[in-house]
Simulated assay, not measured.
Amino acid sequence: MSADPPGFELPLRLFLGFRVLIDELHAELARQGHPDMRPMHGFVLQAIGSRGTTAVELGRRLGISKQAAGKTIDTLEHLGYVERGSDPADARRKIVRLTERGVDSLVRSARIFDDLRAGWAKTLGEERLRALEADLRAVTPTDFFRLDVPGWFGGY
């Protein structure tokens, strides 16, 4: 009998590690004034970016339909994270932009992720964590900021 774990355990453990970090992030975001933020919202806010985007482009970036993107924008607008406005270059186009609240959630998320990483470093040791990060970089594409997780998981 092999001492190696079954192959299916690797993706499940990687996903579980992701889930632990995201759950801890959102618990802390809630404590810091963002109780309505959901895991998918972070992907959406990142896809909107600092310059804003249209619903069509947002759908493309996320790998979801324009309708699903519009519904998500509606939700985030209702929660105060984004706002719609006219494109200065073309008044017919509507641009979705982050509000101050949206930017605040991203800034806080970045700080919280740093704190979570520090916690993992304390548990695993800094050298082992750096080795894990280096190993993950070696087996993953360099363009790791793909935001199409909603579409990849089967829609939103």
Rank of each mutant, 00 (worst) to 15 (best):
R146H: 12
L21D: 01
A121K: 01
R111P: 04
R92M: 14
L12S: 10
A69Q: 01
I73R: 01
R31H: 08
V96K: 02
S2R: 10
S50C: 08
D135M: 08
E24I: 00
L132P: 03
G80I: 11
H41Y: 05
A121C: 07
E126R: 06
M1G: 15
V44Y: 00
G85K: 15
R130N: 11
L132F: 10
D143I: 10
R130Y: 09
Q46W: 01
T140K: 02
V56D: 12
D87K: 09
L136G: 05
S65Y: 09
V96W: 02
L25V: 04
D104Y: 01
D4Y: 12
G80V: 10
M1W: 08
L10W: 00
L14P: 00
L12E: 11
L29D: 01
E57M: 12
V82A: 03
F18W: 04
Y156S: 11
K66C: 07
G49H: 03
L16S: 03
D114Q: 12
L129E: 01
A69G: 03
Y156F: 14
M40P: 02
P6Y: 03
R137D: 13
M40C: 04
V82C: 04
G154I: 08
P141R: 10
R13L: 05
L132K: 06
V107T: 14
G102P: 01
H26S: 01
A47V: 03
T53V: 09
D143P: 07
D143E: 15
W152T: 11
G155V: 10
G102V: 03
P39Y: 00
A131I: 07
H26P: 02
R92W: 13
P35H: 05
F153W: 11
P39M: 04
Q46H: 13
P5H: 06
L106E: 02
R93C: 07
I64C: 04
M40K: 09
D115C: 06
A131S: 11
A89D: 15
E77D: 15
L98V: 07
R111A: 15
K71T: 11
G17V: 00
G70D: 09
F153L: 14
A91M: 14
V149S: 04
L10M: 07
Q32C: 08
F144R: 14
V139Q: 02
A89E: 15
D36K: 11
G154H: 08
R60V: 05
V56A: 14
L12G: 07
D114H: 13
K66P: 03
G52N: 12
L106Q: 07
S105T: 13
A134S: 10
F8C: 08
D148M: 03
G119E: 02
V44A: 02
P6M: 05
G155W: 11
P5W: 04
G85L: 15
F8Q: 10
A121L: 03
L98T: 04
V139R: 05
M1C: 12
R128A: 14
G7Q: 09
D87W: 10
D23W: 00
G63K: 03
